[in-house]
Design a protein around this nucleic acid. Sequence first.
DNA 1: GCGACAG
DNA 2: ATCTTGTCGC
Length: 318
Amino acid sequence: MENSNLDTERMLQVGKEEAYSSASSSSSTQQENWAEAQEFLKKKLITEDDFTWKIPRPRSENPRRFIEEEEEEEVGEVLKYVGGVDISFSKEDPSLACGSLLVLDLHSLQVVYEDFSVVTLNIPYVPGFLAFREAPVLLGLLEKMKSNSSPFYPQVLMVDGNGILHPRGFGLACQLGVLGNLPTIGIGKNLHHVDGLTISGVRQLLKCKEHDGEDFIPLTGCSGRIWGVAMRSTEGSFKPIFISIGHRISLDTAITIVKMTCKYRVPEPTRQADIRSRDYLRKHHLGMPRRLSVEVNGLKEVFLCLTMRWRPSRICCN
DNA sequence: GCGACAG
DNA sequence: ATCTTGTCGC
């Protein structure tokens, strides 16, 4: 146990060192190390339900609920606090980001906890390695909440990004789950093409299934592996969301919980995390696009550079 | 070589 | 991820 923790620390340290030393290492070496870290952490992944709580029945399915209130108490811990995380970015300075962690009450779907963290991200987004860019901020928010002994600490966390639906079967939701040691669910808004899966193929299967009254289809790759499901979470939306397990949860349970939290296409925990992190940047004068009267090409860029944070690399010399 | 590539 | 206008509908 001690050894494995030390190994984990070392793997993460490798990722850190590589990330901050841009001069000495080539980008391919960095990605190889990242992939190595993912393969390592993947060994700790738990793909079954691993928690003590139960999922409460929807009110509509239980007419005798009022009679059984006391009985439900005896059943033990019931799922109540569902978390959601996301990160928003500033348009002016793409390295400026706001991570958010919210917790919603499952029954009311109201936000009972929210926290934000504005940071500067030095690590680029590379497809397949999203976690190395986004996980540190989000783990920080989780850690802060835990150390504060908040009574709202999430029993399960919904992540804006995939779980095992990933080239190496270890996406952001998995990494947050393993490193944060809590159940996680991955929510993708776009399909990450893996194992022969295509968006057109998914659409066809969904169209066939909708006559059967089912609103989701398994994402079965060429290899036969099931990576998750594509689900039409809203009546009017032909565009599905992609659910995959993160950590310490089964796919069936993940689907059930997602359905319980879907007021719109994207389930409320991640939807609110998305909305509120963007609002946070705005309200703190960080991400708001300012109206400029200067329209002359080139001059506008100079103005932006002198006025606010602006990446020099984006300025072209005429 | 070409296309694909979560956020 | 981010930008962007109006538009159609309940």
